[in-house]
Design a protein around this nucleic acid. Structure first.
Lengths: 261, 261
DNA sequence: TACAAAAGTTTCACTCTCGCGAACACACTC
DNA sequence: GAGTGTGTTCGCGAGAGTGAAACTTTTGTA
């Protein structure tokens, strides 16, 4: 009931104190280290309130206090690696991703959907030359990357619409598809040919190709993606050789999930 | 009513709702996926209470709901990689750690102190054969690892005691030093010779050597550590060749921090 | 060194949130 | 269709969380 205009997303089903703590952490993650006063100002909270949140979060390891203020703690790294390693797809896909990266000499990504975002769970690079837009842990919109489109293409129209309602269709570059109908047409093409392409949509000068990893019922659990500079990964190479290699790896991973889990 | 009878101001300056959320997350991290009922039981909370926390945490990306219950979300990976990369020591130390790993053909670790724990911030391996006890993100007690002892040896006795009071001296193996006086004697030796040794204390069959990374005032900001199987990293090799290599790398990192930051 | 200004910490009263228990809905098994 | 296990909603009261202000410490500056 602060100065907030009624339309709050905060129904009775949320814990507001937790949301406030989370907001402090998000601010620090996005803006780097900050002092108590700065945080209080930016989050529109009283200093005393922020003070108690900081104490609580520091005690738990979510924060550390350093010379230049509070910063997010390495506890996130501990939890994050644990989350990565224990993801249902990780063990099955990692060796196949490694092998593919070795063979094609480009970066190969393992991507999963979570909370309506594409999450880059793992990467192996054949050669460490190309500096990519993403990094392990990166969360981006599904519609803006080939890895995300490969996943969306295996969902029902209702499921896709639910995600789009939740996260929107922001433009990452001028090439990003921001229209729903155009996106659904693209997803149709993707589903038909079995792989998704990404031609300088989100990353200038970078191309990519992705195929979904699916459960036995067809629902997508993630995707694998080969990405690199456009001059090396030109469209004909993607469509001919790389698509076959990726579809082969997809099959290996799906078999591995089925019989080794 | 009187109003002020029970107002205990001795109550800690913490946000209890946040602590409850954090407790749920810790339970899931340590025990793997769990259902609402299971979490409520294990954390001694009402189902309705846990329900609201789960909703809040899922909305923020800290959790996801899957077939086998709630699990911690990949948002931790996003924050964790960000925390790793933005650590003051990371940029300066990473290239030197990589170079050292290449040269000696063993795993080289970058370790920092945080919240009274040793945190394994980064690792590079010359050859991927030896399966180590730790992993990136791992948090362990400072007294139980050579990397931690290298850090402790550069702190004042008061600072060390404060950490020991906070985290205790649990035994990781039978060789772990669990007595304060014995630890201080070991830290004296470590400080004198400039490096810390770890001879099968915490990891059976595994040896390690560590040197601190220090600020200009001498205070430790972290340490670097070479670890591997005892038969390859025998004591004389550690003390002669490896110690010199590590001390050289230490100097490079400290210079890099000083003049490139 | 002294002083001012800003940052951090503690206090305190008020109010709304949080947590609980109970009721409810829904999916399973037998 | 009774029974047991989920997850969800409801309503209430206690007390936790909040902000304003007082207070203390640190930082910056003259």
């Amino acid at each position: 009931m602060d100065g907030r205009t009624g339309r709050g997303n905060d129904g009775p089903n949320y814990v507001e104190a937790t949301q406030k703590s989370i907001g402090v952490l998000r601010f620090l993650k996005e803006n780097g280290p900050a002092t108590l006063s700065k945080i209080a100002e930016e989050t529109d909270s009283a200093k005393s309130t922020v003070y108690r949140h900081l104490r609580t979060l520091e005690d738990a390891g979510y924060l550390v206090e350093t010379d230049d203020g509070y910063r997010i703690g390495q506890l996130y790294l501990d939890y994050g690696i644990e989350a990565q390693r224990s993801h249902p797809l990780y063990d099955a896909a990692k060796p196949k991703v490694d092998a593919l990266a070795e063979k094609v000499g480009e970066k190969v990504w393992l991507v999963v959907e979570e909370n309506g975002y594409a999450v880059y769970l793992y990467m192996q690079s054949g050669e460490e030359l190309y500096r990519s837009f993403t990094r392990v842990g990166y969360r981006g919109h599904l519609h803006a990357f080939s890895a995300g489109k490969a996943i969306l293409a295996q969902l029902s129209k209702n499921e896709v619409n639910a995600i789009l309602d939740r996260r929107g269709l922001p433009a990452y570059t001028e090439e990003t598809i921001t229209d729903r109908d155009a996106l659904f047409a693209e997803l149709d093409r993707t589903r038909q040919r079995g792989y998704a392409l990404h031609l300088e949509e989100a990353v200038d000068g970078g191309n990519a190709i992705s195929v979904p990893i699916q459960r036995e019922d067809g629902s997508p659990i993630g995707s694998i993606c080969v990405a690199g500079p456009a001059h090396r990964l030109n469209e004909s190479y993607l469509r001919s050789e790389l698509s076959d290699l990726l579809l082969g790896t997809k099959n290996e991973i799906e078999l591995s999930m089925r019989y080794e889990a």
